[in-house]
Design a protein around this nucleic acid. Structure first.
Length: 418
RNA sequence: UGUCUGGUGCAUUCG
């Protein structure tokens, strides 16, 4: 019951109240046990306070408790969250030396790290290790695997794991199905995505709003706006209400398809339904309007947004900056950048790349190249897009030798030309 | 009583 209380306090984010509570309990003669310590260690690690976690680990040893697998898993998870991979790997080896047999959770934590850094070989290896240790991958393992490979469009792998999980008696849930659908959409296999939706319905898992939004996004990316609209209407009929994401997705589709008018209609409809547009909705529309050259409406929306208490974020600014850069109006773009920085938002690589383009378009490749050199001072490292932008401009201007020089330069800097 | 993952929408070059 002490542990239940401690656990409840941790889940409520009231870690600071735990110490007092433990003191009170100690007066009554109730002492923490290893589960108590594990709970606290885990909470500290989740809050990225690994040093505190280790302190607790020492404390529990002092009190005569032997840290068990759960304690180590918590700390391992802490290293995972802070992406201290070598420390995590070291700790894992230590666990083995201590004779602590890892469980599936241990491997899931490791797999999580490799997913995060995008190391697909290691991800696969962890799965093999699970099997080598005589363990069984669980729902979390499969979630990780399917999510990871679906995002990268490796649908062969996704289907292998999807089948495998069924084989070991795990029923894919709505999230798994949606991840698979998203993967198919990403590789443009819309019909397979739709088949998946049918399968989930057959298995008694009706698609929810997120599932629909995923398919909607797939249609929109492939410019299948009629299908998208049909699906959107179908949602209503089936009682799965479109949410603000559904609207934004469709608005995005219409904007990219050059139907900003229809996008604006949807925006009105959204307001009528009392669905609150968020910053993404506004950004999407502002981008669409800028591309149309309708700066009046774009700035109307900016006002509308501000009036509703939503502040422009880095992407909002990048949209405006990019719009001016496209037109070669570098001074206006720089003005917005300055305003942004004054508002405490830092430049990033996307914005710098836009500005490089702005210099190129205003006929000043020299300035563009200067800017490229200087952006490192802002802790922004030029990437292949930065170089490509200028190279393309040189090619367009038939200044081939300068283009080749820059290719050499990017190779020298360790940026891969494509 | 304690440990692990999760699904949808916005900006930069070329595509």
């Amino acid at each position: 019951s002490l542990n239940i209380m401690v656990n409840a306090l941790c889940k409520d984010g009231k870690l600071h109240e735990v110490d007092g509570f433990l003191v009170d309990m100690e007066k009554k003669g109730i002492l923490p046990d290893n589960v108590t310590y594990n709970t606290l260690i885990n909470e500290r690690c989740r809050n990225l306070e690994l040093d505190k976690g280790f302190e607790l680990l020492d404390l529990m040893k002092q009190k005569g408790w032997k840290p068990d697998l759960v304690a180590y898993n918590s700390i391992l998870n802490g290293f995972c969250k802070t992406e201290e991979i070598s420390k995590a790997e070291k700790l894992f080896d230590e666990m083995l030396e201590l004779g602590l047999a890892p469980n599936t959770s241990t491997f899931n934590i490791l797999m999580g790290i490799y997913c995060k850094i995008g190391d697909s070989d290691k991800v696969t290896k962890v799965l093999e290790e699970i099997l080598q240790h005589g363990l069984v991958p669980d729902m979390v393992s499969f979630s990780n695997l399917i999510n990871f490979f679906a995002k990268r469009g490796d649908m062969n792998r996704v289907l292998i794991y999807f089948k495998e999980m069924k084989k070991v008696g795990l029923a894919p849930d709505i999230v798994i199905y949606t991840m698979v659908i998203r993967g198919f959409c990403n590789v443009g296999a819309i019909s397979k995505a739709i088949k998946m939706r049918e399968e989930m319905v057959m298995r008694g898992i009706p698609p929810d709003t997120v599932t629909y939004n995923t398919i909607l996004g797939g249609f929109c990316r492939r410019r299948m706006l009629t299908d998208a609209r049909q699906l959107f209407d179908e949602m209503m009929e089936r009682g799965v209400s479109p949410d603000f994401c559904s609207f934004t997705t469709l608005i995005h589709g219409y904007c990219k398809g050059g139907h900003v008018d229809e996008a604006l209609n949807l925006f009105d409809k959204m307001l009528q339904l009392y669905l609150k547009p968020d910053i993404v909705t506004y950004n999407t529309l502002i981008d669409g309007l800028c591309r149309e050259g309708d700066l009046t409406k774009a700035s109307d929306l900016w006002e509308h947004m501000s009036a509703r208490g939503i502040s422009p974020n880095r992407i909002t600014y990048s949209i405006l900056i990019n719009s001016y850069c496209d037109k070669g109006q570098i001074e206006e773009a720089l003005g917005f950048r300055d305003e942004m920085v004054q508002n405490g938002i830092l430049v990033n690589i996307v914005i710098c790349n836009s500005l490089v383009k702005g210099y190129c378009r205003s006929g000043n490749t020299k300035k563009a190249q200067e800017f490229l050199e200087n952006m490192q001072k802002d802790n922004v490292i030029p990437d292949s897009i930065t170089y490509n932008t200028i190279i393309h401009q040189y090619v367009k201007d038939e200044r081939i030798s300068e283009a080749l020089d820059l290719v050499k330069k990017m190779e020298l800097k360790g940026v891969e030309p494509d």
